[in-house]
């Protein structure tokens, strides 16, 4: 019963166990451990995009631009002002959150759904173009190198292993914050707007304001992910703001499954590992990847995690799950809360 009350746990605990021990087997060399770090970075970005997609029911095509912006903020602070990366890890989400507040304030007052997607695409493309051409600040297409890694008590977190555990810890913090936020008064207000905006307004939810803050929160989170990227790969370039990463985040979220906490984490792991596995195919890699993507969308349009969860529930409930599943699906309010 305990497991059914805390559905996130049955998945979270094994995932955590695998994640914590992964560097001991399989991921034993620095290169493979770098992949683990990338999974964590994409997972944080995916979680933040999923806050917009799953909780708000909206979409931002400018999310990668905010991600790249966060990466640049932290990198510039460290490179130009010699600010510690730890400050950067705080400054990047703050700056990204402010940008999110601004964009959200402009866009969310008048647009929703696909129109919002297009408007944010406009902002994203603009940011990418500016980054590409503003050489004196962004370094132009070559970007900026030699971004310093964070250090702890005078010891630089340079090794992939240390950075991985560091990032994993932060990912857990993000998951914790997200879970709490979803169940908070604010989180429930956001979900009520998602379900029915007019109804939410009628019971006194300040819909646009809640959405603007939710959007800014997601932007802050993705800015943080960007800072993680900058200090791990130790370079930033304008392509971080471009559509390529936008597509990656979109794939991470939709592959894993929207509206769940573990979906984007799983999606990030699958994306990084599959595209790495396809690397051997060289120029055919992205061609094959396109087909894989199309197949996944065709056969698992809701993502991998919900499919897994259905199987797991059938196992833990032992045959009673059919009716239970149907009842859950019939009650839309339970969709988000069971994911925590």
């Amino acid at each position: 019963m305990r497991l059914r009350n805390r559905p996130g746990l049955w998945f979270g605990a094994p995932v955590l166990a695998v994640a914590a021990t992964a560097p001991l087997f399989l991921f034993t060399n620095a290169y493979n451990r770098g992949l683990l770090v990338l999974i964590v970075i994409y997972a944080v970005a995916g979680l933040s995009l999923d806050y917009i997609m799953g909780e708000m029911g909206q979409f931002s095509f400018g999310h990668a631009a905010v991600w790249g912006f966060g990466a640049y903020v932290s990198a510039k602070l460290a490179l130009d002002l010699g600010v510690s990366p730890w400050i950067g890890f705080l400054a990047a989400p703050v700056a990204a959150g402010l940008v999110g507040l601004l964009i959200g304030y402009i866009a969310l007052r008048r647009t929703r759904g696909l129109e919002l997607a297009i408007v944010t695409l406009g902002f994203g493309v603009l940011a990418w173009t500016v980054a590409l051409r503003w050489r004196s600040v962004t370094g132009g297409p070559a970007g900026l190198r030699q971004v310093p890694p964070p250090s702890l008590f005078g010891w630089e977190i340079r090794s992939e292993l240390a950075y991985y555990y560091f990032a994993l810890l932060l990912l857990l913090g993000v998951v914790f914050i997200l879970t709490r936020l979803r169940e908070s008064r604010f989180g429930r207000a956001v979900r009520s707007i998602h379900e029915n905006e007019d109804l939410a307004r009628s019971i006194g939810v300040a819909a646009t304001r809640a959405y603007v803050f939710a959007f800014a929160f997601a932007c802050a989170l993705v800015g943080f992910s960007g800072a993680l990227y900058a200090h791990h790969f130790r370079f930033v370039n304008p392509n971080l703001l471009g559509l390529q990463y936008m597509f990656i985040f979109l794939i991470v979220v939709l592959l894993g499954g929207t509206g769940t906490v573990w979906g984007p984490v799983l999606g990030a792991a699958i994306f990084v590992l599959v595209s790495e596995w396809l690397r051997a195919l060289q120029e055919y890699r992205f061609l094959i990847f396109g087909f894989v993507l199309l197949m996944v969308v065709l056969f698992m349009p809701n993502g991998v995690f919900p499919a897994l969860r259905r199987v797991a529930r059938r196992v833990t409930d032992g045959g009673r799950s059919g009716g239970d599943d149907a009842a859950r699906r019939a009650c839309p309010g339970s969709g988000g809360s069971e994911a925590g």
Partner: peptide
């Protein structure tokens, strides 16, 4: 029948296939 975003993803997949197929 699914979310509007799923269609975006499937057209993204198509553009991946067309672009990289053409490069090959």
């Amino acid at each position: 029948g699914h979310s509007e975003l799923v269609v975006i993803l499937s057209t993204v997949a198509l553009s991946f296939i067309l672009l990289n197929g053409s490069l090959v």
